[in-house]
Design a protein around this nucleic acid. Sequence first.
DNA 1: TTGTACGCGTTATCAC
DNA 2: GTGATAACGCGTACAA
Lengths: 340, 340
Amino acid sequence: MAKSERQPTINDVARVAGVSKKTVSRVINRSPLLKADTREKVEAAIRELAYVPNPQARALALRRNFLIGLLHDNPNAQTVLNVQEGVLDAIRDTDFALVVRPVDRHSPRMLDDIRDFLEKQRLFGVLILPPVSENDALAALCRELGCGYVRMGSAQLDQGENLVMSNDRDAVGRAVDYLVEQGHQRIGLICGPDGFRSALERREGFKAAMKRHGLDVPAEMIAEGSYTFESGIAAAERLLAASPRPTAIFASNDEMAAGALHVARREGMAVPDDLSLVGFDDSPIAAHIWPPMTTVRWPIRAMAKAAAMKLIDPLEAGAQPSQFLSDLVERSSVARIEGA
Amino acid sequence: MAKSERQPTINDVARVAGVSKKTVSRVINRSPLLKADTREKVEAAIRELAYVPNPQARALALRRNFLIGLLHDNPNAQTVLNVQEGVLDAIRDTDFALVVRPVDRHSPRMLDDIRDFLEKQRLFGVLILPPVSENDALAALCRELGCGYVRMGSAQLDQGENLVMSNDRDAVGRAVDYLVEQGHQRIGLICGPDGFRSALERREGFKAAMKRHGLDVPAEMIAEGSYTFESGIAAAERLLAASPRPTAIFASNDEMAAGALHVARREGMAVPDDLSLVGFDDSPIAAHIWPPMTTVRWPIRAMAKAAAMKLIDPLEAGAQPSQFLSDLVERSSVARIEGA
DNA sequence: TTGTACGCGTTATCAC
DNA sequence: GTGATAACGCGTACAA
């Protein structure tokens, strides 16, 4: 009776089923070498007692737990949440759980903090989001601590088993192609901050595509932001102060594109008639502002799912794609213009 | 030498320090009855070996782990992320970690899924966000499983130790006061979906405030949405089809307010000159659309922090406030109008 | 004030 | 195929 207070253990199951606890353990872990009727007996006992294995004890015995960590420095709320959903997609119906760990990439103690965290929690593995995923010292730390890791990024940051990447360079190229098809030639770029690999990839993708079309990218047609709405405002102000003005602006993320829209409106310019705009990310804001914004959609959730599956089952890693393609979602922030 | 492969254990520390492992355990757990030099000796050994206690073993011995869970079914990414930050604020420098668990409140299996999850992970406790926090059966489940819980909500859903609440009724009342001060009398309401406690609270707060001002709320001045941008569009269309039109609309969240803005623009109405708008949540979209939107700011991060602290240290719960006040953040979506 | 012996619930080893 | 028995690393009676 006293037993009814606590959760049933493997011993209780063994007793009820009339077998040893090792046999119960075998049933739980799906050992193939078991007689069918033994297995059924045990499973009946498990059901009867509503037995659930204790993950702490498992973790202790196996010397690894079933927690996968998400290391991120909030690139943007929707992205982080999409990643969480993707990871959940991967670990649904497994024993894994997701633990989140925001970090501060500007803190000098970041690596030490993460070291503490990893040593303490002894995670099964971690998923690292950009921009922290671009930190090679962090990847080295994971290796040193024997903690599995997968980095998400916009370029070839690591070897395949530790990486899931998008091809931002290519995606931006296609956005530029689209703008050019619509007749734009003087196109401004609001790029992301120096030090972000994604910013670099998107900027280079932009330049390469422009060059491919034989178009010029003078210095005053590039302004740097920091991926925030406010920085998008400042960058757009610089771009729109140029003469002649750009007829279109590509912003390296939607927040900054929204900032540019803000400025255009304030300056009395109509979007898209006086100024076309393309963003990047397809975050909710892109669809919810006016006019709805054309942007590049990044398959972040699928990427996160693939990354988590690589972590959980590295042997199947080959089956998981390492590169994901983005696509352009056309809305209403781009207008066709007649050649200058 | 073989030892150098594995993490040092409490036994290693004891050996190096020349004490028993119980003494080391006492040092770790800050037992007060220890001689100072013993403590120092042990601490030196800990540093020397870079010893970190194994949380799995602790969890097993203590029969509870150091994981706190976040249960949510939230359409708003920023809210969820703010909550995560708040929880992190609370558990910083503790051994706790945060595990997230999105749920689907429309799934008939939701409770079973959560039961599996809680039985499996044996969390220290869970934090439950609205709207799932309004599910009493879920709270009962937590009690049944002996899992600590704190619900976040907009009303008195539970007893103090299991609840952190905002006062939405009051907050909406103050938003209405503000609108009335600006001369508005015909004010429309876009309320949230039936079944959400927050929707109810905000709707009742609206009605009560209007009544207090002696203002009428005819049926055509209330439209229901589902907290999404698109539903805000549909609701605003209904409101704006009435005659006379409202001069102001209060929407129960920012997404729907953004939808209303969308409709106004499409109908050729200027905001705020032809139509004033007030939202709720102060999500990023409120500040990033044009015009920047006046809205009610909900101190979600502080609430989440308080909730997590209640979970971690219920004894100190009395010190943690259970009710948080929202405030109005004035931006540019409300204009003063002359009396009709 | 400190140490010994054992329990926590699981998996692994190796016999049978 | 199955079962004793020993890990896994830490906390706690209870003894010293």
